[in-house]
Amino acid sequence: MTENVLLIDDEQDFLDIMSERMAARGFEVSTSMSAEDALGMIKKGAYDAIILDLQMPGMDGIEALKAIKEIQPEAQIILLTGHASVEKGVEAIKLGATDFIEKPADLESLTRKIKNAHAEKIMIVEKKEKEAVLDALKRFGM
């Protein structure tokens, strides 16, 4: 199954090379250089995983994380951080990020995290669909 991934980072060089390497591994990759543009893309379509740089000009990663979660509560967000400390990562997890990875990232490890995030999203969506069906059955007294 092809995972649909959105990569958000203000470094064009990083976006270019990451998207090429991820595409070679079978991912369908979209990119955005700003959180503001990415929010527009997320409103238009769903992604299996969103890879988000923590520190960007304009809206930073934590603000972007909150905004994405408002648009798509089931979004699976993996934070990519240049911070060597884990505090920001912990804060991000508390705010609903699925995982975080420190730059420079190991692509194989990132790939595993994306696949885990995708599996998690499928479970959340299936659970929601099951709840909706049960709710409908209850409403019809069944």
Binding site: E11, F14, I17, R21, G82, K103, P104, A105, L107
Partner: peptide, 8 residues
Amino acid sequence: NGLAVINE
């Protein structure tokens, strides 16, 4: 950030 690009 620079190391990340070199790494990739």
